[in-house]
Each structure stands twice: as structure tokens, then as C-alpha cells.
Simulated assay, not measured.
Amino acid sequence: MSKKMERNRIPVAQSGKSSYNKIKYERKAGYTMPKKITMADVAEMAGVTKSTVSRYFNGGYVKKATREKIQKVIEEYNYAPNTFARLKAKESNVIGVVVPTLNSKVTSRVITSIDRYLRDRNYTTLIKNSDHDIDLELLNIQKLIHLNVDGILISSIAVTEDHRDIFEQTQIPIVVLAQDYEDGISIIDDDYNAGKCVGEYIGKTGHKNVGYIGVYETDEAVGIRRRQGVLDGLAAFGIHDPLIKKSDYSFLGGQKNTREILEEMKPDAIVCATDRLAFGAYKVLQEKGLRIPEDISVVGFGGYDESSLLTPELTTLKFDSYGMGYLGAETILKMIKEEPVSKKQIVEYKFIEGKSVKNRT
């Protein structure tokens, strides 16, 4: 196993034996079974050890006769294991997932794909939302490490020095999604080339006065790499001075930046770093009586389903978010099994030509 792989594993702390009140279950008339039983109770009634019951639920080897005893108790008392109580086991069969927001189509696709893949392989997904807060993101990672989850998938806002310190100190497998983590394992969108594709498209369709609504540089993938790709694509067609505005990822941010662009210039195209920002641009342009694309072309990134419902249909670029989730889940399970994995994997994108860009050549 490589040194980097070793850094992504931590010795799981030995959990102490929890004390519990032993309950003698006597099968006699008038006995009332408690409404909720524990794994220890199941073990006692089945005549096996608690570790055997834990191994049964975690998919480990248990003799057929023993399995039947445990199964009989489970069925009789309708017992369901407490996932969080199992987190201290050597293998919890729980994967932590840290995401920057739950209010995102892209994030929901990634989470859905991760959860489906892991669920099919008897793993539980534990999701922590950071709400685009770096400090909360770091805290969420630490909480998952303390819970001794088997691995962590993090769709990061950015990989800071604090992130690097945590990643290097823990040996729990960690896969970074959406940001390029050079010192570890990452799965990323091809933000630069996707941005360049859109920039070139706006250039070759004859636009000259371009406004760009991006996001803050704290998000390196979208705020820096995607933006640079757009700028380089535009520059290839002689557009060297687009008006750049920065926003958060919100619908309101898209509106605010669009108004600012209209106050400072007369654009023939507005490129938006996300579809949600493009939705804000649509609203403002339509409020001002400006036609899309006759007066101003609009293009976004994301390929949201709602984008096809706009009038006119939004021209956008769609990343394979489901593919990112699938690759992330597949990779983290390989790391848990100490199988070799690629250091960096890049997911594909697809350009969707709607009707929101006018060919001005």
C-alpha cells in the first residue's frame, strides 16, 4: 500500500463495552415485552454474543444455524438496528458525505448517485451540509472522523491548508469531489475546458460586448478555473475585456449582477457561471423588456431540468453529476478495501444548444 493510501487510513479506535441492564426474557403468560430492544437483547435471546449479531448486520460470516436463530428473534420482535449505535464498530458500513448545500440541482444529483450506489452495496450514507461555510465544512469533516465512518466523500468549497492538515492526520479514506486535491484522491469536473467551450461558442457566434457573472474565488473550481476557461475562449475570438461580476450562487445574486452589467455597459451576451445565475439574468432582462436572444444572448452552466422550460430554452453546459457521484462512491469503497484507485478522475460534460444565444455573424 502506498504512503498516500496509508495517509488515508486511520486505526479505528477500540470501542469500550457499553454497559446495559440485562433483561431476562421469560416466555410466560402476562409478560410484556419492552417496546424497544437493543442489539444486546437480540444477542441474549438468540444465545449468541453481541459481536456475532453485529457481524450479522454488517454482512460478515455467521454460521447458518446461528443466522437462523438471530433472524427468528429479529422477526419475532420486529427489531431494526440503530445505525448510529453501529458507528463505533470496526467497520460501520457508513460513508460520510459532506456537501456545500442541499439547495442545488447538481448537488442533489451527486448525492442521489452516491446514495444509490452505496445502498446497493449495503452501505448507509450520512450527509452533512456545510451551507457554503468553510468553517462548518471543516467541522463536519471532523465530526464524521470522530464517528469512525468507513470513509468520507467531500464535495468541497475549497481545499484549504486546514483541509490538508485534517486529511493528512486522518487515515480514514477520503475522496474530494469537485475540487482538485493534488495530494490525495479527487474527482473533478473539467471546469477549465468546459468554460473555454462556452467562451469559444459566444465568440464564434459573433458577440463582442460580453458580461460575465461568476462566483467568488473561494470556490477554486468555478470561481477561478471555469472563469479562466471562459476568458480564454473569448480571447481566442478577440474578446479581451468582458465585464466581470461576482456573486454567490443564488437567483438573487444573478439578478443583482445583471442589473449592474446593464448599468455599466450595453452587452450583447451574458455568460453565467451557473444556470441559477442565468435564471436571475432572465428575470431582469425580461423585466426591462429586453428580448433573449434578439437583444442579449444568455448562456449558463449546469444543465438543470428547469433550464429547458425557460422561454427561450437556455443554452447551457451540463456536467455528468450522476457520474461524479458514482465514481466517488465506487472509489471510496475501493479505498476501504485497499484496492488501487486513480489519483484524479475527470467527469465528462455535454454542451446543450438551446435558443438563448443568437448567431450574430
Rank of each mutant, 00 (worst) to 15 (best):
E287T: 04
I261A: 06
T66V: 14
E6Q: 13
I188L: 03
A236V: 01
T32G: 00
M39F: 04
E76N: 08
V48Q: 02
I134W: 02
R291V: 07
D219Y: 03
I244A: 06
S2F: 01
N193V: 05
Q71K: 15
G223S: 08
F84T: 14
A235W: 00
T124L: 07
K288Q: 15
S113P: 10
Q179H: 13
S307R: 07
S155F: 11
Y349M: 05
T83M: 13
G229T: 07
D295A: 02
D131C: 03
R55I: 05
S18M: 12
T83G: 01
S356A: 08
F237G: 07
V53M: 08
S104V: 02
A269V: 06
E217M: 05
K245R: 15
G206W: 04
V215I: 14
N93T: 08
Y201W: 14
K64M: 11
L314E: 08
A65W: 00
I188C: 10
Q14V: 11
G254M: 04
K337E: 15
T218F: 05
S18N: 12
A178D: 14
K288S: 11
G323N: 04
V210N: 11
K64G: 11
N21A: 12
G16W: 01
L285M: 10
K256Y: 12
V298W: 08
D275F: 07
M39E: 00
K355P: 00
A80K: 15
G300I: 05
D115W: 02
